[in-house]
Design a protein around this nucleic acid. Structure first.
Lengths: 156, 156
DNA sequence: TGGTATAGCATGGTATTTTATGGGATTCAA
DNA sequence: TTGAATCCCATAAAATACCATGCTATACCA
């Protein structure tokens, strides 16, 4: 039994004609061991699908409730935005989930999808878009390097 | 048995000539597993119907009682509105509920209804109105992004 | 170290179940 | 008895579970 549940690595899988994709085996293990389901939604800021464990959204729901009151406008908009888009994806015995048209369209995914680990979350990209995004991020990281190093002490 | 009971996703269902609508299957499952009934009322802030588990209204009532904020006149009035308006909607064996004229009129719903998940609650919209509302919220969210980031601890 | 056996995984295809929805039958009340 | 609300049945479409195959990576043994 592992202590931490982190989505990692980058895996490319095929999307078949019905929109089915194999969830990377590691991700499945995480979901099983955490006893939680995978939830996906459109990223607000990038042309990709974002996923996480249902637990995280549960926590988010609680946070929003505590931070704002029942009639708060912010709470209203936030919850619509996030939960209105999210969907539970239980994988079948072979480990596949079926992504909706809406999600696939948003990420411009056709027959191939790239899973990118992000720790508590992960993203699903169209392969070409991800290639571009990765070089963009890497370049940006090199320029910002001093800041990155001091603030986080990251290596990886 | 799931751990969390969150209303999610956005699904569009038809309202037939008798005023019947299928409650999304996920919502039904939640109601069943939570052992609570679905309650609906007119939103106090938007032209839509709002729904939740009876449990949540129970909690709201308790919160009001415990709130030593004796002078929250507004909240008091709002709760009057909600409890005065709320009604239990038990779905039949095929999973449908029958929304009242009052609710349908308030949300301007005719022959099609959009269910929008909000975590502990959900909303029911007229499709056109929801389309407008969604773009409005998404635009607003992008502008308010810094606020969003701190409350969620999001990176994206 | 090299080669082979084995287990796990991704993936195509098919079968089964669930779900939304139309239409009628039944019940209850005014 | 009429009107409305509820229940039940039927059907088509969509979602999901299951089976089978080929591949890959890992483990194992000589």
């Amino acid at each position: 039994m592992r202590k931490t549940f982190l989505f990692m690595d980058t895996v490319t899988n095929k999307v078949d004609s019905k929109g089915r994709v194999s969830l990377p085996a590691e991700y499945r293990t995480i979901a099983k061991e955490a006893g939680s389901e995978i939830v996906c939604y459109r990223s607000v800021s990038s042309p990709c699908i974002e996923g996480c464990l249902e637990d995280l959204l549960e926590k988010l729901a609680a946070d929003i409730e505590n931070a704002t009151d029942f009639f708060s406008e912010t709470q209203d908009e936030l919850t619509n935005l996030i939960f209105g888009d999210a969907h539970r994806y239980c994988f079948d015995s072979t480990g596949r989930i079926m992504l909706s048209e809406k999600l696939l369209a948003h990420a411009q995914i056709k027959d191939s999808a790239v899973f990118v680990g992000k720790g508590r979350k992960f993203q699903i990209w169209n392969p070409e878009n991800w290639a571009k995004e990765e070089t963009r991020i890497r370049t940006a990281a090199l320029q910002k390097r001093p800041t990155l190093t001091t603030s986080q002490g990251t290596t990886a």
